[in-house]
Nucleic acid binder design. Structure first.
Length: 801
RNA sequence: GCCGCCGUGGCGGAAUAGGCAGACGCAUGGGACUUAAAAUCCCACGAUAGCGAUAUCGUACCGGUUCAAGUCCGGUCGGCGGCACCA
């Protein structure tokens, strides 16, 4: 048997597919379409990771199969190329980020091609190219026009090492997402996108899409909707209203104090009337020093200071209650102030214990001398609410009382915050806004887009956190597009997430220079039928892009309210040591090495065979040999080839069964069991000792999506035609069944015998056969048969006592 | 703390909808071929007892439902992920 030269064969077919544009989607809008999307890579200098291979191999298999099934498949790829690592390389090596980006994209392109992915290479998108980011800016301006862009001075997450302001999403755990330094708090005026305006739509949209359940759940948690009430407490000294948000209006009789966030504006407003203002200022200063992370992460003693000079009045009871400031209340959620009910909230309970404040039980069921009771029960000490259930009844009644007094109403809150939309770095989309001393913020006119990144010598950010663009006078100084007077250009750039928020739209019509994509193309291709990616992008990229898409939908610019009909996620590939791959651990597997040693087909097969696609699995150097052996055995089929246009009797039902299994498993992303079924089939073929042409053709076809190179080679050698242009093979449900079937005979649930019976044999004859079996007879001897259970084609269970 | 997911051989993992636990692959042991090695092929491979046919136990642990539980229900322990002083 001639040895399989994977290297030559793989190159040969990659060249063929490239030259024949084999996998380009066609603009024939009458064909059924299938739009499969994978997360486009950030082209880092390290090249591809085996994780990319696994992430792309899933929909690669589905796409190749769907093409053979007659779909017009759009399976595009591109590069999400703006970002800090590229800029940092540029600074370090003193070359322009454009050059670094082009270099990295070339490297990624070559790597993707050596794996044989069937991407549509005619639609490649690069977010840093002018004809792409022109439209990113265009959409931003549409948002600006529609009031979704604003500037606000707030405490921001700032990375002193990257010299950049980060969103909450990019600074989770108090560490910079890029360089892992500690984040500090800085007050800065920054850009925001009003994503909270879409909170409810983003939540409701989840009901109409087919996402993995935990993907939906994570997005729901991220949006974090809660329902409750806004209540106004009068402040005795100045007649002001202190507005709070609570999810527990039923507990209003149990309020014994109020807490404001240290930054609450009422303190500044009435500082003259506060006797202990110096003490409050000291506490505020102490809080400001702590990062958001320290403030929230540490499980620590409650601290706070009572405001001497402001007293709240409970709108229902008329009782006067003290007001405190404490850092356990955040300015960024609700109204920045709470009503505290120590009997029924653990945080309030701890605070009250420490400060010696009354704890009044208003719901029966717990022991408030030990801890707060947060469960449900009957109302007590609550006037007109006494005796009813705290749940719906008391809440409804209280809302009625508040409404009657005009000091409260139902309310909804979201945990999701507005999207901090800026970077003070060079390598990003320039924000197309001009600051005019007369007109304020003015949009750059649409016809002047793209607003190009200027050429710069030095990409280093300023030490003050200013963008490098701020140092370029000819960029900064401009005329106001509205009034023509001297004005200054905005120098912040957009965050990394901007370009990926609409790339799936551009793939539909990537070369359009008059629109971001034509309506015709969008109507045909959208929504994305199947989007696969990593769990790490579920709450950031996915929510951001759903937001942009819903915005465009509201403007009538895209045809669907949701961008992605279906979302799945692949599990991580861990290092051979079972730990997450990282350079510092030295357990990184380079896909190039695997391709060189075993070939692309083996790599593709292995990443799908190694375990459940959606779960993490460790890389194993020895397991990959199993895939190599399998393909060697596939190649060996050439030596046992005989004539025949139909499946042989020995293998017919095996083939039908395997085709059915593979066809179904691919759609269910159960690639590991699909491969296992083909391994079983090849074991069967080897024990028969021969394979005919019809069988070889069918085998190559079902293996083709997984291992396209070897199967193209074998197919063209045998049939003289191109496998990827053939139709997917079908199976006959009737032929998947054998004529006789083995069933299990149990006595009292224990396996005693196996019988070969005709398929769908009737109960009585099967049970008679079972009872006739020698071992079964032994087991039931001297006992009464109380029950006989027959599960057709599966088992017989005889219950005897 | 809250929410969600998961615990199956030496290992990765299979097991429609409760119906033969361990498919498929790896590793290991034995054998064949070979001067030898690699490669390949054949056999064995959950545990315990037994020469053996076989028996008993076995899907983290305890209990329940059922003719029948890896699968369903209640509880415990362990691991992973998300959110986190969210009022």
């Amino acid at each position: 048997m001639s040895r399989y030269d994977f290297s030559a064969v793989e190159k040969k077919w990659q060249k063929y597919w490239d030259e024949h544009k084999s996998f380009e989607a066609v603009n024939d809008y009458s064909k059924p379409k299938f739009y499969a999307l994978v997360e486009f890579p950030y082209p880092s200098g390290h090249g591809m990771h085996v994780g990319h291979i696994k992430a792309y191999s899933g929909l690669e298999v589905v796409s190749r199969k769907r093409r053979m099934q007659g779909y017009n498949v759009l399976f595009p790829i591109g590069f999400d190329a703006y970002g800090l690592p590229t800029e940092n390389t540029a600074i370090k090596e003193n070359i322009h980020p454009r050059i670094v980006t082009d270099r990295n994209i070339e490297k990624f392109t070559n790597q993707l091609k050596t794996v044989g992915f069937s991407f549509d290479w005619s639609r490649v998108v690069d977010t840093t190219e002018e004809d792409y980011y022109k439209w990113t800016q265009w959409i931003f301006l549409k948002m600006f026009e529609n009031g979704l862009v604003f500037r606000d001075k707030t405490s921001v997450n700032y990375c002193p090492s990257c010299k950049v302001v980060l969103s909450n999403e990019d600074s989770q755990g108090g560490k910079c997402d890029i360089c892992h330094s500690d984040i500090v708090q800085k007050t800065k005026e920054v850009w925001y996108l009003r994503i909270t305006e879409y909170a409810d739509k983003l939540l409701q949209g989840l009901e109409e899409v087919d996402y993995l359940p935990n993907v939906k759940l994570q997005q729901q948690n991220w949006i974090g909707k809660s329902t409750g009430a806004f209540v106004e407490f009068a402040v005795k000294e100045n007649g002001e209203k202190l507005r709070i948000y609570t999810t527990r209006p039923d507990t209003l009789y149990g309020v014994t104090f109020m807490v404001m966030a240290p930054e609450h504006p009422m303190i500044e407003k009435y500082r003259d009337g506060i006797a202990n203002i110096a003490e409050l200022d000291a506490y505020k200063a102490e809080c400001a020093k702590k990062s958001e992370f320290e403030r929230t992460q540490l499980v620590k003693d409650k601290t706070g200071v009572r405001i001497d000079g402001l007293t709240a009045v409970n709108p229902i009871t008329g009782k006067e209650i003290p007001i405190y400031i404490s850092d356990y209340v955040m300015m960024g959620y609700g109204t920045g102030a709470i009503m505290a009910v120590p009997a029924h909230d653990q945080r309030d309970y701890e605070f009250a214990k420490k400060f010696g404040i009354d704890i009044i039980e208003v719901i029966k069921g717990g022991d408030i001398s030990v801890e707060a009771y947060t469960g449900d029960g009957e109302m007590v000490n609550s006037g007109e609410l006494d005796g009813i259930s705290n749940k719906k009844e008391a809440i409804e009644k209280m809302l009625g009382l508040l409404a009657a007094k005009g000091c409260g109403e139902k309310g909804v809150q979201y945990k999701m915050k507005d999207w901090a939309f800026n970077r003070q770095r060079y390598w990003g989309e320039p924000i197309p806004i001009v600051h005019c001393p007369h007109c304020g913020m003015v949009a750059v006119p649409y016809e002047e887009l793209p607003l190009r990144l200027p050429k710069v010598e030095n990409f280093e950010p300023g030490t003050d956190g200013e963008s490098p663009l701020a140092k370029i006078d000819e960029y900064v100084n401009c005329k106001c597009p509205k009034c023509g007077c001297d004005a200054k250009r905005e120098t912040d750039t957009m965050p990394q997430w901007a370009g990926s928020s609409w790339y799936f739209l551009r793939y539909c019509d990537p070369n359009n220079d008059s629109e971001f994509a034509s309506q015709e193309a969008l109507k045909y291709w959208m929504p994305v039928d199947w989007y696969n990616g990593g769990m790490e992008h579920v709450t950031r990229h996915m929510i951001y892009s759903r937001f942009w898409h819903k915005f465009l939908y509201d403007l009538g610019l895209v045809p669907t309210s949701e961008p992605y009909a279906k979302r799945t996620a692949q599990g991580l590939i861990l290092g051979p040591d079972g730990e997450k791959m990282s350079k510092s651990r030295g357990n990184v597997i380079d896909p190039n090495d695997v391709v060189d040693e075993y070939g692309a087909d083996v790599l593709r097969l292995y990443v799908l065979f190694m375990g459940d696609y959606e779960k993490a699995a460790p890389w194993s150097e020895s397991s990959i040999k199993g895939c190599k052996r399998f393909l060697d055995r596939v190649w060996g089929l050439r030596d046992m080839l005989v004539d025949g246009d139909e499946y042989s009797d020995e293998l017919r039902s095996q083939f039908h069964k395997t085709i059915k299994k593979v066809t179904e498993d691919i759609e269910a992303m159960k690639f590991n069991t699909a491969i296992a079924a083909m391994m079983t089939l090849i074991n069967d073929i080897y024990s028969v000792g021969r394979i005919n042409k019809a069988e070889l053709g069918a085998f190559c076809t079902m293996l083709n999506p997984f291992a396209p190179h070897i199967t193209e080679e074998m197919y063209s050698e045998t049939f003289g035609s191109i496998l990827s242009e053939q139709s997917w093979i079908t199976y006959d449900e009737a032929l998947c069944k054998d004529e006789t079937i083995e069933i299990v005979v149990q006595v009292n649930g224990k396996l005693k015998a196996k019988l070969n019976i005709a398929v769908d044999a009737d109960k009585d004859s099967v049970i008679a056969m079972a009872l006739d079996d020698e071992k079964v007879r032994e087991s039931v001897e001297g006992k009464n048969i109380v029950k006989q259970i027959y599960v057709p084609n599966k088992l017989v269970n005889i219950v005897a006592k």
